[in-house]
Design a protein around this nucleic acid. Structure first.
Lengths: 146, 146
DNA sequence: TCTATTTTTGAATATTTATACAAAACGAGT
DNA sequence: ACTCGTTTTGTATAAATATTCAAAAATAGA
């Protein structure tokens, strides 16, 4: 029996390489890879990963990863935690030149609870937190993009 | 009894202004607007529109329009009041991609009593009000650009 | 170690959503 | 109007998915 985290990773992998139309199919794929769980657990995994079931172009349903997970897997690290600073409730993140727009877009698309919006220049992102979010929470939220 | 196309439009409208967690809720909203259909029809509508049910940040499920429909609707309408949110005294306005600079410039040039300055990215405008301006006042001031 | 707390899980079930099928509604051509 | 084909819909039901509840597993402290 492998860890939950491994299972979640495997789910992401499966969804990127296979067309899966329902949870039972996904369950089979997981079994083939040595994970034995029930549909209930899978449903919870799917909820946690924010996976969606999309009606595809012709008549079928397909499970898909949310954009921010795909983005996270592709990008290495054009920003560093040391490059986050605060002014009031706002955070300013420095990136490699030219990367700010793209990363800001990733952050926006993730639609996290903590972040209301971002504005990006060329190498700087202004991160506007939602009300009541502490610096610590904001840093934690930003972590996933770093 | 209204046409199917009207119904589809109405569904899009509802999903952009209301949080809907399942088809029954959506059905109720449709009934309130004079459409009487069954869940079966709604399920088909949803499939046709490629609407997805996504797990949101709070652990609930929310029906959302696919990006291409939202983009299509914003063609005619670069900003919407529903796209104004607040963080502290700041307002954030979402626009159609690429429109933020232009609209922000319009706002700046109007030199209203309520607005001190704006900063624009590609699809986001940060609006900084003058001291002592309430949210209501700020919204009223922004109205004229919407 | 032991105990307390949190997290993860399965079984059963409730809820939700999709579809088979038949009927109705619509349209185009005559 | 009438027929033929297509589209849309409701009913009933199947299929799929989420959740409740209890138990097991992991984690953290002492």
């Amino acid at each position: 029996m492998k860890s939950k985290e491994q299972r979640l990773d495997t789910i992401c992998e499966i969804l990127q390489t296979t067309v899966v139309g329902n949870q039972e199919e996904l369950l089979k794929q997981l079994n083939d890879r040595g994970f034995s769980v029930t549909q209930a657990t899978l449903s919870r995994d799917i909820k946690q990963l924010k996976i969606v079931k999309i009606p595809d172009t012709e008549g079928n349903y397909v499970y898909k990863l949310p954009d921010h997970i795909i983005a996270a897997q592709q990008k290495s690290d054009p920003i560093k935690l040391s490059n986050v600073e605060f002014s009031g409730n706002l955070a300013v993140v420095r990136t490699k030149p030219g990367y700010a727009m793209g990363i800001a877009s990733d952050i926006d698309n993730a639609e996290t609870r903590e972040i209301l919006a971002t504005i990006a220049g060329d190498d700087t992102i202004l991160v506007i937190p939602r009300e009541g979010i502490s610096r610590e929470e904001l840093i934690t939220a930003l972590m996933q993009f770093i």
